[in-house]
Design a binder for these strands. Structure first.
Lengths: 225, 225
DNA sequence: ACCTGAACACCGTTCAAGT
DNA sequence: ACCTGAACACCGTTCAAGT
């Protein structure tokens, strides 16, 4: 569909990112082609190469478009609860956008929208008493964890889930597969099949966040924990 | 090159995974096509569909082939040092195989080679005193962290690094970009530009591992930490 | 049981040519 | 300054046909 307005807004790089985001939402990352993004902005594929060196660069624009609208949590409570909220919001934000983690996780270069958040997070970390060096490492650690986690979360659990099966069915199937392993060779996997498959993603995510926060607390002098 | 031996070994699914791994090593994930894997095993592309439903399923085989040869650390020292070694080895293993994290990180279904490692890790976690539920969550957390981290590590830091620039140059460029931000709007990013860009990946990885291990220790009764 | 040729509907990218 | 048509060298996948 050549974009349904009559007047074309000027074709900025930012508009390209937005168009890519719409195609992503509609077709997923596998369906995101230069040709489709071009059609989305009412232009032919070859024209995109005037604005962008190649598809990689378009994905950089998409990367930033994905992070648009991400909001930092309110500045209330101790550093621990603020950081916790940060992680949960970041997860939610990615989770709400189809294939977002697949796009974002392979891209170190942060766009303006992510920079805004990092600036704010660094500020809170320093205020909480983390050293400059630690604060820098912490933002990297949290970003890596959230992106890595959602990347898993947004991938189909298995081939069976990729084709219509519900998450519940896929999880049960996974548990059965573990229980079917030879118990002499895999005593722990068979015994813990339930523990390994039951917890939902929300619980798993929170578990990781709390462990990391506990670990971070140990970096602070006792009275600031 | 139709594989250079005269006698074709029978074309098992495992052989397919191995062939895919060789193509991956040579051409990277972007260059891994059904046609090339087919040639690698001395067959035409269409023939692969006899052994495999689609490319997705071939990537599952590749996923397992990548994890082949991964070794658990020796069973010496306390749980902390054993788990630390686990993480560092897992990172090394992925890092040594081109684009390995990109393949592995989107695939929850573990192949036999990963199952072997998880079985062993669960055993050590339970022995260390973690509850069954915690042990299960911990293997998931550590796996997610390592995969997420290496995924970043194996991606080019920026477009400039993708084209020939060395890591050192790319890092310096990133630092300069941060320092060039308006300091009123980004006081922390500009001030911490050095701290954010200087640490090498080894250091960053270890930082995360140590924080997580500290966090895990808090799950254990005091005398087992 | 396993492989092939040929075809289909796509890709990303380049480039001369248009306005 | 920006866009296009046409082409190139690829893709994944299907399917009738071969052995």
């Amino acid at each position: 569909m050549p974009n349904d307005d009559d007047t074309q807004p000027p074709l900025t790089r930012e508009a390209l990112g937005l168009a890519a985001l719409q195609v992503l939402e509609r077709e997923g990352l596998a369906g995101l082609s230069m040709r489709k993004v071009a059609t989305e902005v009412g232009v032919k594929a070859a024209s995109l190469y005037w604005h962008v060196r190649n598809k990689e660069e378009l994905l950089d624009l998409l990367n930033d478009a994905i992070m648009a609208g991400a909001e930092a949590p309110p500045r209330v409570g101790d550093w621990r609860s603020q950081l916790r909220e940060y992680c949960h919001r970041h997860r939610r934000h990615l989770l709400d956008r189809r294939d977002a983690a697949k796009v974002v996780a392979g891209r170190l270069a942060p766009g303006p929208n992510l920079l805004r958040l990092q600036e704010d997070q660094l500020d809170r970390l320093r205020e909480a008493g983390f050293s400059d060096a630690d604060a820098a490492m912490v933002t990297y650690l949290l970003g890596t964890y959230v992106q890595g986690f959602v990347l898993q979360e947004q991938s189909p659990l298995s081939a069976s889930e990729a084709m219509g099966a519900s998450r519940r069915e896929a999880v049960d199937a996974a548990a059965d597969q573990l229980r079917a392993l030879p118990p002499e060779e895999f005593p722990n996997l068979t015994a813990l099949a339930g523990d390994l498959t039951e917890p939902d993603m929300e619980t798993r995510f929170a578990f990781g966040v709390e462990r990391i926060l506990d670990g971070l607390a140990a970096l602070l002098p006792a009275e600031k924990r």
